[in-house]
Design a binder for these strands. Structure first.
Lengths: 248, 248
DNA sequence: ATTAGTTCTTGTCGAAGTGACAATAACTAG
DNA sequence: CTAGTTATTGTCACTTCGACAAGAACTAAT
């Protein structure tokens, strides 16, 4: 974020940036040991310049002249993870006066969901200034640059609300998945345990999930049936397309 | 929206503007005759310059250098209606490339709820370029400048979702109100009729509404009991304050 | 082969919520 | 005093949801 002429800019409207909160599902760790459950993780970028040099921050940057907001968010995602989003949605526009110490910045923030990285894909991004952190770890959040801790907290809250009536879950998963995996997603997002029987009944009723004839083999116990998602696979929910026809 | 030096700006990031969709409750009219119900209305501003000169548009304008996004939205509201908002909330940031024919504009849009204007207050704003229109009138929406029809439709949709679990209703009303008035609000927002008995039961259970000892007199029939709102009266729901404590 | 252990899957029961609708209460207008 | 209208309460069937029991299907150990 550097400008040819700073004094010129300050007279004009604030700088416009786009940042992206990227969530993925990974094995939960406590003290380096896996708990057997999953939890939410997000990639952060270490700042190489002032302000907040050396601290971790959300991936983001200024909006290019002929770049859609979504395109900018997707670019953040690609630069950080090398992945294409399976879900990308606008979170909020943060416009406080003192979010950045020097130049005022208005940030339009998106949140994205990606599937768990394959080890090979992770190797593609070998940047020491990019790393993944547990999204609910207070120590991580407190060390973030700018107001990014607040942004992540709000993203977590919105994610928890969205998952209730949406079919966000399968965005974290692959083409085929077990109901137990879907439950893991919900438990990570909602941050509480769910009853398997009731959860299964709920899925049968509402979500666009269809059983297949295949089973997940190789486990240590009864093999679970595999399901697949049959609903909308659009990556970006646009306000225009979200509105039902009769609302006009 | 004029700038000292247009060519300078176009090299830099897009212009940033704040617009506000303002809703209020008024008597529904069909063919100039009141139906006895209420419906949603919104104020629009006639454009006096190109582009879209002469057409109606949402109140809005560029973001001032040291002005919060909410402040800008509240300023829109005050300039158009002379009123202070009883509810103000961020809707969405619209950043399409060709929203405006010439200079690219990114608009951060808020939606506001105000109580029905008193006739005196209406007279305070005697601007022929400001007028109120039915929010669900397709003819009105189709004639709007820019992409504002899309924005209003999205605002209506969001309003309908929000009212479900929120206590938006009383923002349209005064300090004391009858349950029938609350029902009118819900019917206007959801755009469908509700059963009075069930609606009343629902309110008893969830919303922060408390009966008073007073009754609304002067009606033609049995006088209804007056209620009052006991919940949160904060005007602006901030993301930071929206997040519950355990989400961090 | 049998048994124990774990996960997967279905079923049951009561509490709570919701839509449809009947019935009573309380006022005004004639 | 009666009819008309709105306000308010109550009832009943249906659905939803949390808690929990129980059977099904596989692996691993004996």
């Amino acid at each position: 974020m550097e400008f040819a002429n700073v004094s010129e800019r300050q007279a004009m409207s604030p700088e416009l940036a786009v940042s992206t909160v990227i969530f993925s599902l990974r094995d939960e760790l406590v003290g380096g040991q896996p708990t057997g459950r999953k939890s939410l993780w997000l990639p952060l970028v270490r700042r190489t310049r002032q302000p907040f040099r050396g601290q971790w921050a959300l991936p983001g940057g200024p909006l290019a002249a002929r770049q859609t907001l979504q395109d900018a968010a997707a670019a953040n995602l690609r630069a950080t993870t090398g992945l294409a989003p399976s879900h990308l949605e606008q979170l909020y526009a943060f416009g406080g006066l003192d979010r950045s110490p020097s130049q005022r910045v208005v940030s339009i923030v998106y949140w994205a969901l990606v599937r768990e990285e394959h080890p090979e894909a992770a190797r593609l991004i070998e940047d020491p200034n990019v790393a993944w952190f547990p999204a609910r770890d207070e120590a991580v959040l407190d060390a973030l640059a700018f107001d990014h801790a607040e942004i992540v907290s709000y993203a977590l809250w919105r994610l928890g609300n969205k998952v209730e009536y949406g079919s966000i879950a399968h965005r974290f998963l692959g083409e085929r998945f077990t109901l137990a995996q879907v439950q893991e997603v919900y438990e990570a997002v909602l941050d509480r345990r769910l009853d398997a029987a009731n959860f299964r009944r709920h899925l049968r009723g509402t979500a666009d999930i269809e059983p297949t004839d295949e089973y997940l083999l190789g486990g240590k116990h009864r093999p679970p049936r595999l399901y697949r998602y049959t609903g909308d696979t659009a990556v970006v929910p646009d306000p225009a397309s979200t509105v039902p026809a009769d609302s006009t």
